[in-house]
């Protein structure tokens, strides 16, 4: 990333921070609104990207490109993706017709059913 004069540098920093915030909000909105599991995973990835960009931007502009954040990003992203991969793979191995229908058409991350709290849950 090239450095311009001081004003340009500050402006681009703010722009990137705003873009990150926007990514986070889109991710949260996607998780709350989406009805299929693929969209939810994509929304989660938007939050991860937003976090990664935060690390990189802060490192670039504030801390003279330190190494600590790069290690955090590599370890963090690897582990998060590994956990997500395990979840998807587990589902792929065990998925039946009913689960497929639920996951792709009728899956809400924060679905609250009355039976989760009141009375019995006949699953």
């Amino acid at each position: 990333m090239g450095y311009g004069n001081r004003g340009e540098e500050k402006m681009s920093f703010q722009l990137i921070i705003y873009a990150n915030l926007l990514l986070l909000l889109i991710g949260i909105f996607g998780i709350l609104y989406s009805k299929d599991i693929v969209s939810i995973f994509v929304s989660m990835q938007l939050i991860i990207i937003s976090g990664v960009m935060n690390f990189l931007v802060f490192s670039q502009f504030l801390y003279q490109r330190s190494l600590w954040d790069k290690i955090f990003i590599i370890l963090g992203v690897t582990i998060i993706y590994f956990v997500m991969f395990c979840l998807v793979y587990y589902l792929y191995l065990n998925k039946d017709e009913l689960s497929r229908e639920t996951l792709y058409n009728n899956f809400k991350f924060f679905k609250i059913k009355k039976s989760d709290w009141w009375g019995e849950d006949n699953i």
């Binding site: 976090g51 935060n54 690390f55 955090f72 956990v83």
Partner: peptide, 12 residues
């Protein structure tokens, strides 16, 4: 999983 993603963002 969402919790650890939010942790990641929080740490950033």
């Amino acid at each position: 999983v969402l919790a650890i993603i939010l942790f990641f963002f929080g740490f950033s």
